[in-house]
Computed example of a mutant assay.
Amino acid sequence: MLWVKAFHIIFVVAWFAGLFYLPRLFVYHAQCEDELGQERFKVMERKLYRGIMTPSGVLAIVFGLWLIYLTPTWLTAGWLHAKLALVLVLINYHWYCGKLLVTFRENRNRYSHIFYRWFNEFPVLILIGVVVLVAVKPF
């Protein structure tokens, strides 16, 4: 079980790294005015989303479900239900990042860099909630 937990944590960290970095790329992409820079950001965003974020997110979820399978008594714990709700929110945030990536790819971005600066802060709130729930298990 400890190996499963270790790999779950590794993939959660990798997933969050991407969730923190992709919206930061959106900030800079929204500010970019030259075509060469625009194309460079499109490549960076696509590789981050498809090559790191999505595989890491999928593997974090797989290893998390494996942990639940190994410890089914957690299913009665309120903290796990709250954590799973936050994970669902995070999955939707990930999906929305992919949708924003497409708008940049198609040169249809309609948000300013200020929007993306605020958007970039959202996963921090989720991370705080998840860590507190797992470490403290308040209910």
Results as ranks from 00 to 15, higher is better:
S56D: 14
R46P: 06
L65P: 03
E35Q: 14
K42G: 11
L100D: 10
L59S: 09
L67W: 02
L67K: 04
L80M: 11
W79E: 00
C97L: 15
H94G: 04
L67R: 04
Y28T: 03
A60C: 10
F26E: 03
M53H: 01
G78A: 14
K42A: 08
A85I: 13
I68T: 13
Y93F: 15
H94A: 04
N92M: 09
R46A: 14
F63E: 09
Q38P: 03
F63H: 08
V87M: 04
Y93R: 07
C32M: 13
N92K: 08
C32W: 11
G98L: 09
K83L: 03
D34K: 12
T54G: 12
W74H: 01
K42W: 05
G51H: 07
F63G: 14
G37K: 08
V62P: 09
K47T: 07
P55R: 05
R50L: 08
Y49F: 12
Y49N: 15
V89R: 01
E39V: 06
P55V: 06
T76H: 00
W66N: 12
Y93G: 06
I91G: 06
F41K: 07
L25R: 02
G51S: 09
M44D: 13
A82M: 09
K47L: 15
A82T: 02
L65S: 06
V87L: 08
A60M: 15
N92T: 08
R46Q: 10
A85F: 05
A60I: 10
